[in-house]
Computed example of a mutant assay.
Amino acid sequence: MIGDDVDRVLTKLQQLVAVPSVVGYEGPLMRHLARELHTAGLDVTSTEGGVVGNGARGGRVVISAHADRHGLICTAPGTFTYAAHVLPAIRGVANSHRHAFAETVCTRFGDEEVRAYDPRTGNTVADGRVDHMAVCGIDDLGIEVPVKGLDAILTATPVAFQGKVVQEGQHVQAQLDNVLGVAMALVLVEGGFDGTVVFTAEEEIGASWRYLNHELLRHVQAPDTLIVLDTSPFDDTEAVDVGAVVLRWRDETARFSVPTVSRLIQISQSHDIPVVVKDRLIERLNEERRFNGRDELPLGRTELGRLVRGTAEFVNGATLQVPTTMYHTNAETTSVTAIANAMRVLRDATD
């Protein structure tokens, strides 16, 4: 079963990365996901902020995954801005831009093939490539990324990184955040999951929790079980190679459900699956950094943390994350073992 799960997740991954879903312009992928959930037999509702599928246990057991990915937006003829930064600026939301981060973005996507697409249909308008020889810039709207070959496209056109999945031995590379979580949820549904699945938009700008909350409030009471799927970045490959699942007791904004997190830990231990508790790991690293006079690492913010804080803890749950390296790139990497272990825990937790 678990081996079959991995094969199905990888097949879904191939299909999903081919559909563009730049943050703020997720329409083509959301329509694809609505069809998938409908085919699987769920009652499907499309909303402004995502797609919801409800089965017989709708509202009681909820799985969520954000479906947006990083990309660019054409903000003027020949000018392309990192979407996760330009959208808050356009909407009047406070956002800070650092030159160091601009360099990071260009390093992440230098020389990557991209495609401008029609946000209504998902059809490709033109192909281009990030110019790794040019320098990223920062203006009032955010981080400008130099792109060759798209001079003729219209302002406000989204530009996605070309979708590709590469498997080398036990490692899987793609723009995994968070199409991997979406693929896992779809495989769970096709295997008979009859709760609620919520695919949200705009997580990369911190807005997705509002869409998730809107769906949960339709059921009046908080779910018995809420699990939010995502990837989790690491600087080295240890967690990836051992196939760890990544859990949290908290993030920067909120503490998570003790019963739900405890259950995920128990399930993992029952299968001898390694567990990394990310907030505890960061706290240990920060003890060393304080001792050495270095700046502390942030605990990080999650969709679930924003939801818990935004609902004054009325809604709570747990994150279930797959460890990756090369975070937020087109070569974000995890392992077959990590995917298999996350699916095993997810299945047991939602039975």
Score class of each variant (00 low, 15 high):
T124E: 11
A102L: 02
Q173V: 05
D127M: 12
V220F: 09
T196R: 07
E113K: 11
L188Q: 15
V145W: 01
L188W: 03
L212P: 03
T200S: 15
F101N: 09
V187S: 09
E112P: 11
Q167H: 01
V220C: 06
A116C: 07
V189Y: 07
V147F: 07
L212N: 04
D131W: 02
L150C: 07
I143A: 11
T104Q: 14
A152E: 13
I205M: 03
E113L: 13
F193V: 07
L180I: 05
V105D: 12
G163V: 03
L176W: 07
F109A: 05
G195S: 12
V165H: 03
V197G: 03
D177L: 02
I138P: 12
G191D: 07
N178W: 00
D151Q: 14
G149K: 05
G110F: 01
D131E: 06
M133L: 15
A100V: 11
V182T: 04
A183T: 05
G169E: 07
H99M: 15
Y117W: 06
D131C: 06
D111Y: 13
P119D: 03
F161W: 07
H132L: 05
H171R: 15
G137D: 10
V197W: 01
I143N: 10
G137V: 00
Y117L: 03
L186N: 04
A201H: 13
L212H: 05
I205P: 12
A160Y: 02
E113S: 13
Q175K: 12
D131K: 02
F193D: 08
L216V: 11
G191I: 00
D140G: 15
Q173D: 10
A134P: 13
M133Y: 12
C136T: 11
L150P: 14
E215P: 06
V114S: 03
Y117D: 03
C106A: 12
V187W: 05
A126R: 08
